Computed example of a mutant assay.
Amino acid sequence: MTTGTYNPAAATVLGLSLSSPVLVGSGLLTDQERNIRRLLSAGAGAVVTKTIHPSPPRSGDERLLRLPTGMLNSTTYSRRSVDDWCAMLRGFARDGLPVIASLHADTPAELAGLAGRVVAAGSRALELGISCLNEEGGLQDTPERVAAYTRAVRESVPVPFSVKLAAGEGVGERVAAAVAAGADAVTLSDTVPGLCVDAVTGEVRLGGSFGYSGPGIKPLVLAEIFALRRQGLEVAVLGSGGVQEAADVVEYLSVGADVVQVYTALHTTMHETFARIRDGFDGWLRGHGTTTSALVGRSVGR
Rank of each mutant, 00 (worst) to 15 (best):
A46D: 05
A265L: 02
E136V: 09
V296F: 01
P57K: 08
S213H: 03
F281Y: 15
S26V: 13
A227D: 14
V48G: 04
A246I: 14
R124C: 02
P8C: 08
P143L: 10
F161Y: 07
C86Q: 14
V153F: 15
A93C: 06
V300I: 12
L40M: 13
A223K: 09
V260D: 03
P219F: 08
S19N: 12
A185F: 01
E136D: 11
G43R: 08
G242T: 12
M270S: 09
L103Q: 05
T30Q: 10
V255R: 03
V237I: 15
A265E: 06
L238I: 15
T2M: 13
R63N: 11
L40Q: 14
S162T: 10
D184L: 00
G241D: 10
S209I: 15
E224S: 13
A42K: 06
S19C: 08
A199N: 04
I100H: 01
G287T: 13
D84T: 10
R66L: 07
E245L: 05
E245H: 14
H267M: 08
V24F: 02
L253I: 06
V250F: 02
L23S: 03
F274Q: 04
V13Y: 00
T187D: 02
Q140K: 13
T291S: 12
Y6V: 12
T187Q: 00
V22A: 11
G70P: 04
K164A: 12
T150H: 14
S19P: 00
G202E: 10
G289N: 11
T2H: 09
G280K: 10
P158F: 13
G91D: 15
A223C: 05
P68Q: 08
R145H: 15
R66S: 08
G242C: 00
R58T: 09
L23D: 02
A147F: 15
V255F: 00
L222D: 04
R79W: 06
L39P: 04
L222M: 10
A247W: 12
S19K: 13
L253A: 05
L114A: 04
L139G: 07
A42N: 06
C132V: 12
M71L: 13
T268P: 00
F210D: 06
V255S: 01
A294G: 05
A167I: 07
S240Y: 00
S41D: 13
G170V: 05
P56T: 07
S17F: 06
L72Y: 03
G239T: 04
V13I: 14
G25A: 15
G283F: 09
A294F: 01
S17G: 08
R286S: 12
G60D: 09
